[in-house]
Amino acid sequence: MIQAEPQLTIGDTEVRFDLDVVASYIKPGAKVLDVGCGNGLLLELLAAQKNVDGRGVELSQRGVNNCVARGLSVIQGDADTDLVFYPDRGFDFVILSQTLQATKNPKEVLQHLLRIGERVIVSIPNFGYWPNRLALALKGRMPVNRHLPYSWYDTPNIHFCTIRDFVNLCDEVGAKVESAAALDGSGQKIGLSMPWWFWNFFGQQAVFMLRR
């Protein structure tokens, strides 16, 4: 079951809102690679609900050992360096949830994901979310809040972007956005009819389904 406490840390133990949206994009029985799978909650969810053939890559050794002990096909690896080993179109879906902002080279990572998966699902925290803008505009400080819990000096999130930034990157690498959803701070979907600027202001995070 999806729980109600949103968290944005990498390798989190809570099921996050975005995972619910991600799961809704996945077709039953698909071959799925979850890059940055944490402790495997999404893979477990997808195996139980959609009977997927799931694989995972996770940076933290603790996360990996935890996953393997629970019977998941997960390896220790780094999105920045290890995606190169995967063959073209090896998976129906490749998922990168709340991880892109922590990679060294997000553009290259995204290009690899598009090469490996028929469909790529990326979820990102939106740095353009209004409380973040407020923190910078009024306090003149980098935002630290319940969604972005780290200080600037110890954050693993070295490449934050806004929803619009990400859409631009998709254009740049030739990815087509098939579906997208923005979630507000309480995890509710923002209306589909709303324009990008609205998402970019009120979306705390966004989930995209892309293809080449």
Partner: peptide
């Protein structure tokens, strides 16, 4: 070996134990 198996699309788990 893990990278070779990834390239073959194999199902693989890999743990390094401290």
């Amino acid at each position: 070996v893990v990278h070779a198996l990834n390239a073959s699309g194999a199902s693989v788990s890999f743990v390094e134990i401290e």
